[in-house]
Amino acid sequence: MDSLYFLIPIAILFIGLAVKLFFWAVNSGQYDDLETEGRRILFDDDESGVDVPEQDERDD
């Protein structure tokens, strides 16, 4: 059981990282439009020349 004293803090560290990552994702607008982004990947199959505009980047 001693390993718990070591593993749980690591787990908590990971949660901290996950929360930070999630905040970054929310703040950069990745969750602003839940319907479109999930399907966007399906659309650009045979068009390679034009690059896809990024989702809104002008965030504060």
């Binding site: 439009d33 319907e35 479109t36 999930g38 809104d56």
Partner: peptide, 26 residues
């Protein structure tokens, strides 16, 4: 979602348009 694709592509092809981002939600 396909409307978003269409609008972004169509406007993106125009001369002078740099970047288009459409939010279907809003």
């Amino acid at each position: 979602a396909a409307c978003v694709w269409l609008i972004e592509k169509h406007l993106g092809q125009l001369e002078g348009v740099d970047k288009v981002s459409v939010n279907a939600n809003t």
